[in-house]
Amino acid sequence: MVKVGIIGGTGYTGSELLRLLSRHPRVTIGAITSRAEAGRNVADLFPSLRGRCDLTFTDPEGEGVFAGCDVVMSATPNGIAMTHAPRLLAEGVRVIDIAADFRIRDIAVWEQWYGMKHACPGLVAEAVYGLPERHRAAIRKARLVANPGCYPTAVQLGFLPLVENGLVDLSSLMASAVSGTSGAGRGAHVPMLFAEAAESVKAYAVGGHRHQPEIAQGLAQMAGQPVEFVFVPHLVPMIRGIHATLYARLKDPSVDVQALYETRYRDEPFVDVLPAGGHPETRTVRGTNLCRIAVHRPKGTDKVVVLSAIDNLTKGASGQAVQNLNLMCGFAETEGLDEIALFP
């Protein structure tokens, strides 16, 4: 058994971690922290966990909070994990950050987009980017894993076979993606109120979303050179899910893109390539660690359109973190993640 601690367990990613880890056959949860809720029973805040989790929230600065933990997973807002990671790593604890503190290699770029000084820039180069479909071997050996963002997961998995094989014009990459309201977190924000978000769809951060540099970095690493990438996110009136529509220009329109995707993802447990003509839906991945993908060729063009759907809280956050935990601990990659999507 592996003992896992959780920093920041009161948000949506924290509650999703609890849901997944509380039924993981190889994990015990040693501690879960929250400054605001310290001393409160977890099941009082999350009644869905009654009978599944008997922990009490503790203060993250308390003495010996993570004593005996093998891995600590940080489900905090951006800027928090980087203040805990140096001490935890020095104590021999492995760390998975579900926020963005260690995702972007260029510290100046990170500080520009996240509006703060990085607390431990020396660790950024060591951190392994936790997209298993790209970095599985490195994740297994890592002390520090930077869990990818939700939009970056859907977009990178959608583009991966095309970009890593050099099949598309790298100046033609575009993504239009929609997300449910849980992607904004659990805090009180007027745009997320039901009366504001219901029966409406809107684009946001069109001039620059903070996931843009993360996606561009990942695509450039796949391609071995810089890329030009346009990303437009949208808010839609649903709770969970991301659906990304990706566009690119093929260098050789005769390429069998369906076969390409089926071959690339044949052995990936959490990527499901639909048959030709398919259309993934967010409800078919709700509560699962799956990314469902479909590939289309608009007639009479040299373009390819890729559709990618994930649950933003699972494959886009906590589920992928558990997938990385499994890799780091030598477990089967699917341990604790064999959920079937809820329907309807």
Score class of each variant (00 low, 15 high):
Gly218Arg: 05
Val236Leu: 00
Glu91Lys: 03
Pro191Val: 10
Gly208Val: 06
Leu260His: 12
Ala43Asp: 13
Leu131Glu: 15
Ala138Arg: 02
Arg26Tyr: 13
Lys303Ala: 14
Val163Trp: 05
Pro47Ala: 10
Asp311Leu: 03
Val163Cys: 04
Arg134Cys: 13
Val163Phe: 08
Leu219Lys: 02
Asp272Asn: 13
Met192Gln: 13
Gly287Ser: 09
Leu250Gly: 09
Ile6Asp: 10
Pro121Glu: 03
Leu89Lys: 03
Cys53Gly: 04
Arg143Ile: 02
Pro280Val: 05
Ala341Pro: 00
Glu37Arg: 14
Gly14Asn: 08
Arg134Ile: 08
Gln225Asn: 04
Arg35Tyr: 01
Val271Ile: 15
Ile242Tyr: 02
Val71Arg: 05
Gly187Met: 10
Glu164Trp: 02
Pro152Gln: 09
Leu45Tyr: 03
Phe194Ser: 07
Gly218Gln: 10
Val72Asp: 08
Arg264Val: 14
Pro47Leu: 09
Leu123Ala: 07
Ala205Leu: 13
His234Ala: 14
Thr301Cys: 06
Tyr204Glu: 06
Phe229Leu: 00
Val163Ile: 13
Glu133Met: 15
Val145Asn: 05
Gly187Gln: 11
Ser74Ala: 15
Arg19Leu: 09
Ala43Tyr: 09
Val230Gly: 03
Val4Pro: 12
Gly9Pro: 06
Gly11Cys: 01
Gly187Pro: 00
Gln212Asn: 11
Lys251Cys: 03
Asp256Ser: 11
Ala125Met: 02
Val27Gly: 04
Lys251Gln: 09
Asp272Ser: 12
Ile96Met: 07
Val71Tyr: 05
Pro86Asn: 06
Leu20Ser: 10
Glu228Ala: 14
Leu123Asp: 05
Gly330Trp: 05
Phe194Leu: 08
Gly130Phe: 04
Arg240Pro: 00
Thr288Trp: 10
Gly30Asp: 07
Ala90Met: 01
Thr28Ala: 15
His211Ser: 14
Glu111Asn: 06
Glu164Asp: 12
Glu228Thr: 15
Leu342Cys: 01
Ile215Arg: 02
Gly241His: 03
Pro275Tyr: 07
Glu268Arg: 06
Leu246Met: 11
Gly180Arg: 01
Arg50Ala: 15
Ile96Glu: 04
Val227Gly: 04
Gln323Trp: 14
Ala38Lys: 04
Val227Leu: 05
Pro213Arg: 01
Gly14His: 08
Gly130Glu: 03
Ala248Asn: 07
Val109Glu: 12
Val255Phe: 11
